[in-house]
């Protein structure tokens, strides 16, 4: 076992913004600030678990309309064909664009869903003290934080298509009501990943104190 001590057990806290290690008294009543950048110091983000749960549950609720409502309405010569996110993926597979279909499927269906599941696993691990490998949990968290932004892909595609295919009665592409819900899901899961404090994963691992 590596000889590791946490900053908290040594009476220090690293600044959440500039990562400077500062002296810190573990008392929420006293406001302490980073001497380098002036950000308020916290040993752990306050109420991190509760905030993350709240954002995650909201994101999960938004994920339903995002998948049930049409995200895009294609009208060609007077025919309106609304398509959902999954319908768009299926259409791409029918066109034979398997690579792009895989990218869209991963970015707009798999990633938000796996992000929700992953963060729920991390929260449950922290709350009930579930024995999971802390190193793997941190890797998962890092992955969740990194891939979150890629879900915005579908929103960008719809914005571009709506601007580009605007040829009056011949062809038109418009955004559907699911776009707002999907955008909310992406932003809320990104915020959830940001408010989650990965140091909580390691708190039970440190043998000191």
């Amino acid at each position: 076992m590596m000889d590791v001590r946490s900053a908290r057990s040594l009476g220090m806290a690293s600044c959440s913004l500039c990562h400077k290690l500062c002296r810190f008294v573990d008392n929420d009543e006293i406001a302490q600030y980073c001497p380098r950048c002036g950000t308020r110091l916290y040993s752990r983000y306050p109420n991190s678990v509760v905030h993350t749960w709240a954002l995650l549950i909201t994101a999960a609720i938004c994920f339903l309309p995002a998948n049930l409502y049409p995200i895009m309405v294609v009208s060609q010569l007077g025919n309106d064909t609304p398509s959902t996110i999954f319908g768009g993926v299926v259409a791409l597979v029918h066109h034979g664009a398997y690579g792009i279909a895989a990218v869209v499927f991963i970015a707009s269906l798999a990633v938000p869903f796996l992000k929700l599941i992953g963060l729920v696993i991390l929260l449950i691990k922290i709350q009930i003290g579930w024995h999971l490998n802390a190193s793997q949990c941190t890797s998962m968290y890092r992955m969740i934080e990194f891939i979150g932004r890629w879900s915005m892909l579908d929103i960008f595609v719809i914005a571009l298509l709506a601007a580009l295919v605007n040829l009056g009665a011949v062809a038109r592409i418009e955004a559907g009501p699911a776009a707002t819900a999907f955008g909310l899901t992406v932003v809320l899961t990104m915020l959830a990943a940001m408010t989650f404090d990965p140091r909580l994963i390691w708190d039970k691992e440190v043998g000191d104190e």
């Binding site: 590791v4 040594l10 009476g11 220090m12 290690l21 002296r23 008294v25 968290y141 440190v206």
Partner: peptide, 29 residues
């Protein structure tokens, strides 16, 4: 005041603080 009290408590650490850092994902020093 907080700074001063923690100085006394963590005197040995305090000397070398500029050279220390904590991992911002697992809090190891």
């Amino acid at each position: 005041d907080v700074m001063v009290t923690s100085d006394i408590k963590q005197n040995a650490l305090y000397q070398e603080e500029g050279e220390w850092l904590a991992c911002h994902e697992c809090d190891a020093v």
